[in-house]
């Protein structure tokens, strides 16, 4: 009867018991249980039998002749002629991501500058002060946001707080088109140089 009480709990550990992989405490419990439970003892014997068959059946086979030499030949070849780099992943992707990020930031800044943001502080009206290149002026007003909206977003407060810095940035904006383009180019050059070198 004692057997039935512990069988379900202890049987999953019989393999580990046979392989001496159990902690002393549970090993002791199983040993005691096997003394009194004929079913588990029988199962244990069957497992031991299966263990022996498995050890016997899964013995190692000899490796094919020349395997080591073939591996060494291939590794020598690789050492002498390193494989080509994964161009798309390692070379092109950083360039694309880098210039992509710069483009997105530029676009974002352009949208903010041309959306009437600076008008709130009364410093500058980008549209009137011709920051927008002439060929973009017909569409520049499309995304102009009403001053009321900016105010509702707390933009004026930020502008007032950042006053001198904004003034400085704003003072650059008339030449900003060219300057910003140069900065963008400088930022992306390392990425594209890497790409050119790789190709």
């Amino acid at each position: 009867m004692e057997g039935n009480k512990h069988c379900d709990r202890l049987r999953p550990h019989l393999d580990a018991f046979l392989n001496d992989e159990l902690k002393a405490e549970i090993r002791e419990q199983i040993a005691e249980h096997l003394d009194v439970c004929e079913d588990c003892r029988k199962q244990c014997e069957e497992m031991r039998f299966l263990d022996n068959v498995l050890f016997s059946a899964l013995s190692m086979e000899s490796s094919p002749p020349g395997l080591t030499e073939e591996i060494l030949r291939r590794s020598d070849l690789i050492r002498e002629n390193p494989p080509e780099r994964d161009m798309v992943r390692r070379d092109l992707l950083p360039g694309m991501l880098g210039s992509g990020m710069v483009s997105v930031l530029t676009l974002l800044l352009g949208v903010i500058l041309w959306s009437g943001f600076l008008e709130l502080s009364g410093m500058l009206d980008p549209l009137e002060d011709a920051i927008v290149p002439w060929f973009l002026q017909p569409v520049a007003g499309f995304w102009e946001v009403s001053p009321l909206v900016w105010e509702s977003m707390g933009a004026k407060m930020s502008l007032d707080a950042l006053g001198p810095w904004i003034q400085w940035v704003a003072s650059l904006t008339p030449i900003g088109g060219v300057g910003f383009a140069i900065i963008c180019m400088l930022v992306t050059v390392p990425f594209w140089w890497r790409t050119v070198k790789a190709t």
């Binding site: 190692m60 086979e61 490796s63 094919p64 395997l67 080591t68 060494l72 590794s75």
Partner: peptide, 10 residues
């Protein structure tokens, strides 16, 4: 390679 190849192959 020589010390591990046999086991890896099996």
């Amino acid at each position: 390679v020589r010390s591990h190849q046999h086991r890896v192959y099996n």
